[in-house]
Design a protein around this nucleic acid. Sequence first.
DNA 1: GCAATAGTGTCTTTAAGACACTATCCC
DNA 2: GGGATAGTGTCTTAAAGACACTATTGC
Lengths: 272, 272
Amino acid sequence: MADTVTNERDWLASYDPRAYEPIAVTVDIVALTIRQGADGDAEKALHVLLVRRGEMPFAGRLALPGGFVRPVVEADGTRRDEDLGEAAERELAEETGLATGTRLDRVHLEQLGTYGAPGRDPRMRIVSVAHLAFAPDLPDPTAGGDAAHALWVPVADIDFRSLAFDHARILADGLERARAKLEYSPLATAFAGEEFTITELREVYQAVWGEPMHAGNFHRKVLSVPGFVEDTGATTARGGARGGRRARLYRAGPARLLHPALLRPSPEEDSR
Amino acid sequence: MADTVTNERDWLASYDPRAYEPIAVTVDIVALTIRQGADGDAEKALHVLLVRRGEMPFAGRLALPGGFVRPVVEADGTRRDEDLGEAAERELAEETGLATGTRLDRVHLEQLGTYGAPGRDPRMRIVSVAHLAFAPDLPDPTAGGDAAHALWVPVADIDFRSLAFDHARILADGLERARAKLEYSPLATAFAGEEFTITELREVYQAVWGEPMHAGNFHRKVLSVPGFVEDTGATTARGGARGGRRARLYRAGPARLLHPALLRPSPEEDSR
DNA sequence: GCAATAGTGTCTTTAAGACACTATCCC
DNA sequence: GGGATAGTGTCTTAAAGACACTATTGC
């Protein structure tokens, strides 16, 4: 395939307004992590990264982080187009303020879907390519430019109707995708640290599915799926806070697909 | 949400070239159907709709049908933006030349993914929202404007490397999606007619998965999944061409998800 | 009758889930 | 020792697949 790099000038040269409509393209991110609830809840809960909008439209409302796809300026001053995933990565780094940290490289990013209903942004025609990000317990966004107004919100606390644009729909689609992927992919390990216990893995499933799982059966099931997890040989330094046996530590295995799958306790009446 | 309809004038008024890059957006269609192979093959085979390109770049090469997302002109002369799915539907109708026919309303259409790698189109920056269409046996494209150069190609015969743009990737993703969806969704019924026999349904699975299935076990399995198919009470007018019992006729049931799922004979080592 | 196609019976193996139990640790 | 957490044994039921069989039709 041709390796042509398109820049703004090239684009303008080839622009014929009768042939097509130039459209603003954005990437929006549904970034999910598992963390302790802000309240004194003992349970770990699923959180999503949201930003408080400062501008119209929807000023003051919560929205998914995101931004325009635009040419990036390299160190030497040249401009080049960025791929969609690249734009999503950039936005996520900006919003979390973790660009300089190393922890962002453990984030799993995948495309969720593209939303282009007319009128979805009252300002103009915008098509948004939504992405889904899965991350181990990330800290609160602090440093960095855009990060000041970003925050982790427990999914259970969100009033979907209050979200800006069509972000309720996008978030709902993202959550459903995440719930479905836990079944047949080793995605849950992306929410855990480099090394984790079976119990921690179970807490991921419980947080995303919102249902308690049977500890014993879960344990055996995970170990029975080839390539899901690998024994590190090590154990946790100590047992639970109030006593208890030390847990074996595992790392993510090579499997990209779980066979057999870990099915949800109550299969939903869903249409996808 | 605001019901603002954006037109070209509005867009130009809000255009700030420093804030974002205006991008041409296209929809590409991976349209799949099951039909008898052109050769004397007895087996029904999976076909995809491709067009022979007449223009540069990739003139003479096969490509997925598609076109630009652009404002549509209503009967009264007003212009409005179209949704992505709407654009896909329009393109599919144009390319198949079946716009006036009634059979297009039985086509299942869903979004596949969005492809925006820089340089994927050598002319300019183009982001393409690929869609996947599943249709019962459709006739060869004949009437209609763009349809002259469109044709159904057996998937097995395609040299992926010869496809235009990044359409090999898109087609491969579409095929994998279709194969996966057969497992847990009643999608196969979208490939069959209004009424169908269990054997016809099995032929769909065999064509998409490319593997023979055990007729007896398949039969029992399909009937055991609640809501997958509904008995019409009728049977085929006659048995097979060379004798044989008449088959019961079924129609698609209400289930949107198959529980339990129909798993593929050989689960692939896939990374999704 | 015979070949062909539709549909069923039955058995084995695997997996899911309920439940009880053992193992190890902190205090 | 006692409570807490990790991990295992065992039984029941559901489901997948192999295989053989019965049922009905065209010729």
